[in-house]
Amino acid sequence: MKALLVAIAMLIAAPALADSSLPPAYWAYRQLPNASQEARAQRLMAELRCLVCQGQSIADSDAELAADMRDLVRRRIADGEQPAAIRAWLIERYGTWISYRPTAEPATWPLWLAPIALLAIGLLLLRKRIRTRARP
């Protein structure tokens, strides 16, 4: 009886969603058995933008494409591929936008310089406000 009710609830629910009827990929909602591999995969997934919701990482998204990407990331990590290589492979296809971690290309240099520049400007403005030499 319970099973039937569950089935009915799912039937009502199914047409409401513009999603496929296929189940999620195997590694989309499972962890890799090797804990350090899983940690590496998790770190990478948290830094990849979901292309469907666009405001979330694939680690935080329920979209199917994000689930399939998680499957892809976990499989490749399990095959021994480096996270950096997987990120580069995805950037080659979708552009740098997919990576929440700004890459090291020249367009991002001002971004990494900004905090240092701000600190320097601040210290420069401060230099007359604080007496650095002890008063006799």
Partner: peptide, 30 residues
Amino acid sequence: VILGTVFVGTLYPLFVEALSGEKLSVGAPY
């Protein structure tokens, strides 16, 4: 400095796109 960094990080992608047409993301890692 923290405020300036958050401000720059939030708006930087917009300026890069305006100048070069290239989209990039500045997210949690930064």
